[in-house]
């Protein structure tokens, strides 16, 4: 009769991973400062754009684009938050401990992504709501009135634009998280993410071929994300709002996939 005791295979439930990651996130000062910065910069960015004036019925300025101009800044903070969620693990060497405690790397990445998504989503919603509210107070004084064709700044379209903005910020944070898992170095990752974000619209403004410019506006995550926030002239945009958000989601999915593959194949 054998006396060997068969130890049960260790289990790594997702709940534990989530709890561990949430504890890390909650107890570090960095993320909360970053999320506060995300809200502040997004709302403050509106002040810069509030120089926009609409003097006639043909000014064709999208009030949502003015209200959400702070997103140009806010997305950089969202990106830093996403990058640091994983970059910090590598720069401090914590990654070895994390992956020893949670050998199922995909579960670990999923927990990381989930724990990042919830607070970023909340902060983005707060930031966008603040911007929209500020825009609602400021813009009618700048000529964005029913007489100039801006009947309401709280229609279904405006709510769709605000939702698009919130989802956009969250997707950018996740995109950064995925790339950080692939690249491992925070500085290089943030350079890469901001390059992907800002270079497409800059290039589109410069290239002389309109067809190429339109393609750049369709492919780039930032211009595609802006399409999701548009409220006027939606039919003449390079992409429909939901297609625009879809393009951003594809970028994010690709980045997360790349991160997951790198994590599985590579030694940490």
């Amino acid at each position: 009769m054998s006396l060997t005791v068969r130890a049960p295979a260790p289990r790594y439930p997702l709940g534990h991973a989530l709890h561990a990651e949430w504890t890390k996130f909650r107890t570090m000062a960095g993320p909360s400062w970053l999320l506060a910065g995300l809200v502040t910069l997004t709302v403050v960015g509106l002040a810069a754009a509030s120089a926009a004036r609409c003097q006639s019925a043909t000014c064709r300025i999208d009030p949502a684009m003015v209200s959400f101009a702070g997103i140009y800044l806010g997305q950089a903070v969202a990106a830093v938050t996403g990058v640091l969620a994983i970059g910090n693990e590598y720069s401090t060497g914590m990654i070895k401990l994390s992956l020893t405690a949670m050998p199922r790397r995909l579960t670990w990445l999923f927990a990381k992504a989930t724990v990042l998504t919830a607070p970023v989503l909340a902060a983005a919603a707060l930031a966008v709501a603040g911007s929209a509210l500020a825009g609602r107070l400021i813009l009618p004084g700048h000529g964005f009135t029913p007489a100039h064709g801006y009947a309401s700044l709280t229609s279904a379209t405006d709510i769709r634009a605000a939702t698009g903005a919130v989802l956009y910020l969250t997707l950018i944070a996740l995109l950064s998280l995925g790339l950080a898992a692939a690249v491992r170095d925070s500085a290089a990752t943030i350079g890469l993410v901001l390059g992907v974000l800002y270079l497409f619209p800059l290039a589109a403004a410069i290239v002389s071929s309109p067809a190429l410019a339109r393609h750049l506006d369709q492919i780039g995550p930032l211009p595609a994300g802006l399409d999701a926030q548009a409220t006027i002239g939606v039919n003449s945009l390079p992409l429909t709002p939901w297609q625009g958000l879809g393009v951003v989601a594809l970028w994010t999915a690709a980045a997360l996939l790349l991160g997951a593959l790198a994590l599985i194949i590579r030694d940490a």
Partner: peptide, 27 residues
């Protein structure tokens, strides 16, 4: 590293993006 890189890229790139964006240009 990450915050510094992001800060420098933002202060150089975002003003340029806004300048090309017709909503903040004087018309």
């Amino acid at each position: 590293s990450a915050s510094a890189v992001a800060t420098v890229i933002v202060v150089i790139f975002v003003p340029h993006l806004l300048a090309f964006n017709p909503l903040s240009n004087g018309n």
